[in-house]
Design a protein around this nucleic acid. Structure first.
Lengths: 221, 221, 221, 221
DNA sequence: AATGAATGAGGATTCATTCAT
DNA sequence: AATGAATGAATCCTCATTCAT
């Protein structure tokens, strides 16, 4: 939305680097796919955002589907490489690492995240398989942390895969409602969610007998 | 809930043909909207599912948008009235009530839930306002439970609205991956999530040692 | 081109029988495919000829390709059934029958003929197979006549299939240049070609030994 | 024969690169025009065949139409000059000469022939006139032979122009079905067709009165 | 001589919707 | 309540061509 305003005007190519156009297409498509959904966005709209005629888009992406695939693949690649390079204090608990990383990364990329979770259904089967593989790789990071912690007795988790999904759903839901500039800072959110996650997987120790009784009492229901 | 659907008939129960069609339209639209997204579904597809020509749909719903609005409004109405009528053992902890209710209701209505959370963006502003009001009413039930429990010192929650969203996101994410007939029963899921939710809002550490023991007692599951 | 002028005007369906529209589409497509070739004709042009918006064509033919297929299949069906029903004087020589029939039929249907021979390449493989089978059925009629006559010693033909093609090519080429209303009547054309065909397959008898010798003498060349 | 193709180069034989490209364009266009028709072939396809981007074609031919015009004009020029230079045994009958020449030339140039007869309709009027003039020149060769032979009493032809077209259509149809390597050699084909042509224009003399009578007897029909 | 990016027009087809029957 | 035919606008994408580099 920023550089778009600087698009060269007049007819014909102004030699303003075609390279840039592909990037502007990505940016415009991202915004629109996130806002309205892949199917509801037309190539015309994207072209208009970019400041180009619809046909020109096809110099950069062979089909609309390829734009989506490109966005999703590069999001997953970035997510995984960002995790590899994440810089946290040495002694930090892996679960804290993951929670803070995930929230931070996802709050900065609300649109990419949303698309990546919502538009899986808009992918043609071949592309779906590509993306799905990446998603599993990411989820397995958290599953590994949980299993590891459970093995060491630090967490109490019966089903690490279920817990992985529960936690990721919880964290990934944040950008749905969180708006920067509000009462809560990103750091506040991180802390709040970290607390909830930690407690959710914490060993019960000697602490909450009453609650459990409740649960067990629940009969047929 | 479209007015058309309510058109009363004076001819006795035999004359249910039109009613039936409207119902079949709702059912077909629900499936397709959930699977592909509102924008990606055509009236022709719905008509084909129903076994009718596209024009006939307009005898039952004035526009495609009205089908969506109908589905979402009736889902929310049903959700709220189901909560009002939910039948739980008398002494049950309200949070447990809510968690079990929500999971149960949503697992039975995966498509409605999904549409209701995803297709808000496809609603025209007027319809959006209608639905959004209902959603807030539902969320406020959980917020109320949390605030109440916090006031009584049973939970430790700094931000009840944040917690509300975190919990609802976590629970609502279940139908995204849960499949009946797998290793985990619905009841298992309820128990697992209930445990996580309870712990997530539990007062910390030294405060409720008893509770923890209870949780650990939860056996095989 | 005639009834088209009578197309009902004004917006919306004038209930002037949709049935008729399909026929008008066929007629317009025929003219245009013959004149410019399948690939060079747009659905918009056909629609304009018919007096309808492009989308309306799709109520009658699922694709442009189906219009072509329809034209070619019905031409071949008509050709074969016309042959079956052709009414010639009882004692007429079968070859004369065929030549007169072919010329007559094809002069009346210059466009269909042209399309049927030229647009085979525009058919998708499945449709091509359908049409090609019909074409072979028709050619086999002439081959049968030639083989029969040769067996009876009335014709001298070394390669009945080659002769079939030679004759059909010769006859089918007529509409390429012949224009009614010129110096030569259709009847003249029939007679001229019949004479040439007859002579082409006639036994050489004892009459033109020189000619044949010539041919045989031709050496390497 | 586009002017561009004739652009002389002063740099010696090494600098034949551009020339080569133009030739490759001609060759690719020829194949594709023959196979699919002018209208169905895109400049992009031609460029891909040549191994070049579409824009580069315009260094060699100003428009797509000019490629077609070039192919057709050069085919006709080659045909006429090949006739002038054809080397046949001295005493050979002119009709045999023509038939053998035409078959030979056309079997070697199936694509050019096909285009030249089929894509006349794709020519803009100005280009059409150019080509049509050449075609008439070629046809007049055969007409001359027939008229000459008729004058000398060697042939019996009522309408030399009709006969010209009949014969050319017959001969030109060969590449439509003939495939080298089959049962019949090119030489066999020449002989078969020559026989048919000769007989078709042969004087009836005293030899086949019956046949003629047959024709004449045919009444109204 | 070739590229890469663009244009503007147009390709076939689909869409939600209308309406006479 | 349903149909069949239509509309008008929009869909994705392809086209021939241009032109700065």
């Amino acid at each position: 939305m920023t550089d778009i305003a600087e698009k060269p005007h007049g007819r014909g190519p102004v030699r303003a680097k075609g390279q840039e156009t592909a990037g502007r297409v990505r940016k415009a498509a991202l915004k629109r796919f996130a806002a309205a959904g892949y199917a509801a966005v037309s190539m015309r709209e994207i072209a208009a955002d970019v400041g180009v005629r619809p046909g020109a888009l096809y110099n950069h992406f062979p089909t609309k589907q390829d734009i989506l695939k490109d966005l999703m693949l590069s999001h997953m690649a970035e997510l995984l490489s960002a995790w590899d390079e994440a810089d946290f204090p040495d002694g930090m608990d892996p679960l804290e690492r993951f929670v803070r990383f995930h929230i931070r990364h996802h709050l900065e990329r609300a649109d990419e995240v949303f698309i990546s979770y919502m538009e899986l259904r808009s992918l043609e089967p071949e592309n779906f398989a590509l993306i799905e593989a990446e998603r599993r790789r990411y989820e397995s990071i958290l599953t590994g942390i949980l299993e590891d912690g459970a093995a060491k007795g630090r967490y109490s988790i019966d089903e690490p895969k279920v817990a992985t999904r529960a936690i990721i759903a919880m964290l990934t839901g944040i950008p749905n409602w969180y708006r920067t500039g509000g009462r809560l800072s990103e750091r506040n959110i991180e802390d709040l969610y970290l607390t909830m996650v930690r407690k959710a997987v914490a060993p019960l120790a000697t602490r909450e007998p009453a609650a459990l009784n409740d649960t067990q009492k629940v009969p047929a229901l």
